[in-house]
Design a protein around this nucleic acid. Sequence first.
DNA 1: AATGAATGAGTCTTCATTCAT
DNA 2: TATGAATGAAGACTCATTCAT
Lengths: 194, 194, 194, 194
Amino acid sequence: MEQEKSKRELIIEAALKVFSKEGFYKAKVDAIAVEAGIGKGTIYEYFHSKEHLFEEMVKFFMEEYLHRLSLALKQEKTFVAKLKKYIQFEKEVMIRYGDLIYVFMREAHIIGIQIKEIFKGSRNKKISLVEDILQQGIAAGEFRKINVNTAALVFMGSVHHLLADEIFINDSSKGEIDIETLIDILFNGLKAAE
Amino acid sequence: MEQEKSKRELIIEAALKVFSKEGFYKAKVDAIAVEAGIGKGTIYEYFHSKEHLFEEMVKFFMEEYLHRLSLALKQEKTFVAKLKKYIQFEKEVMIRYGDLIYVFMREAHIIGIQIKEIFKGSRNKKISLVEDILQQGIAAGEFRKINVNTAALVFMGSVHHLLADEIFINDSSKGEIDIETLIDILFNGLKAAE
Amino acid sequence: MEQEKSKRELIIEAALKVFSKEGFYKAKVDAIAVEAGIGKGTIYEYFHSKEHLFEEMVKFFMEEYLHRLSLALKQEKTFVAKLKKYIQFEKEVMIRYGDLIYVFMREAHIIGIQIKEIFKGSRNKKISLVEDILQQGIAAGEFRKINVNTAALVFMGSVHHLLADEIFINDSSKGEIDIETLIDILFNGLKAAE
Amino acid sequence: MEQEKSKRELIIEAALKVFSKEGFYKAKVDAIAVEAGIGKGTIYEYFHSKEHLFEEMVKFFMEEYLHRLSLALKQEKTFVAKLKKYIQFEKEVMIRYGDLIYVFMREAHIIGIQIKEIFKGSRNKKISLVEDILQQGIAAGEFRKINVNTAALVFMGSVHHLLADEIFINDSSKGEIDIETLIDILFNGLKAAE
DNA sequence: AATGAATGAGTCTTCATTCAT
DNA sequence: TATGAATGAAGACTCATTCAT
């Protein structure tokens, strides 16, 4: 039982490596087996099909991702520190796995797997985490009583775009985005002082 | 001559429909031929391979996209109107073609096609268009002298995320994002008045 | 009429070049058209199919080949000179066209074209030419009253093998076979003097 | 191990049958699979491609051929018996496989496979076998001190031509060549006694 | 008569999946 | 339970042939 769970995770982690690098169609089941250090047939002892493995891997990744993000944010006290932690966390994930969530969402859609609900749920949880931080800022009197959902998406989108720009377009594998300017813009806005 | 160009474009447009719906690997050359209303072999009269067709289609789409965006922005006078036009334009493209640029970029990477430069160029042109608008705002004394590159990415990322959230996650195929709140946040910031 | 014959021959000669270099299957009708400097469709005005063109080309080649060989041999008076002329002629053909007759025979067989009779007829004519020379030697009292058919095949086979060895195996594109030794062996035999 | 070698050879032998009958281009991988009584995909477990299979089959055939010829010749004591054995061996091979070596050489050349060296090596080994026999005759004082290389080629070419004439042209599937006359001509020459 | 753009039947090859061991 | 040899459905691509101009 313990053994089986361990092997299952072994496969999922190998799948994560291969699918994130090759995408669903270019990834070979063979390559995943090699990555996991097991026989090809063994994969089919734990998953009905390549699609099923992909689906389970997505679930695993999303849960793990949200769990770790949640833990990371909890480690910080102030909402500013939390926002900066969020940026840091996203940066590390993007450097390691690339723009995986977008990619998985897209591929799941093409494959026809019904995991939209998983993405929706995960995404909403993630948004909630950011909304909570912003709410904390409002409660502290530091932020205006703005629509936190929109604000959360603005923040997340900004971070995502800045990171993607650095990492995927400018090939800066460090993703050295201008955090201070970002925070400044989001906090103080673009408008000139009247 | 005129005829040939017409047939080439016919294929590219069919390819755009099929590739945007199915992605590179799931798309069948056959399906593109059917979509174009021609024989399978005809595609190979105009493109060496499926990959070549994909590459040419991406170039075509990116050029067309930037050209239209540029025209749309020129139609507006004030920078506020331009920013709203940008949102409108992005919304329409995303509703029609989905998150194509992200998708194409990812797939091109996996296929191994050397079109990163095309994306890079296009992306930089698009950023420039937004930077120009923000610069106009600064020149008009309405915006602070902020780093326009970061600001442009913040704006674009915000718009993209809000739209993607509406269209892909919440299935609101209209993408009814909260433009006023977005503009308010970006202009005035999150901070409470002191 | 004159015009048509000319174009037909033009195509056959182009076909000869391409088929002798590429073989039946690898040769493209397109390549033959390019070689002939005409449009692809034009070939089908003169021949029903690739097979038919191949068949007609084989007939043309065999007739031309035998005609020229016959003329070349007639130019020589003595049977020794004729035999040497035969070697010279075979050498030139083999350098220019490769081992075409074998090849055509083989390919015709595979394609399923009924030209075995053509080869049979041509081959028998060629054997007759050599038999006549040998008969001339016998008549002159220079040769024993040996079975001329077998002797002709021995001579032809010897020449063919020596040439093929030089040209195809040892890459000596000149085919410098040891004519004197060949003639010596065939005339005087291998046996030591008693 | 034993099993794998067995399956590999099974495929090669099926390939030999099909390629020798159809030639490289007309032969279908499917047909080879059917001939071998296995699935189409299995062939690709043992060979990268149709070309690779062809190449390996040629190597196999050439080695087997030379090995058997060598053994057959060793069984005979006198050089005359060895020469007759050579003829007998060639006849059997040609009846069974056709003019395979010529054909394979030609096709390998067209396909562009680099097996010319294999043919060259095999051919030289075969020539050596015949040269050794002739050398034995010279050593025994039965043959003149003639150039054995040329003599070997004369002998081999004569045999080949006589057999090809019988088998391919005159459709005598028995290849009943006139061995006595051949030996007589080669031993005693064509010349009339002085 | 001459052309070459258009076609689609035909073939090699890949790879997810099965199943005997 | 774990394996990997065997399979064959599926798909990219080629090229002989047609036919409208």
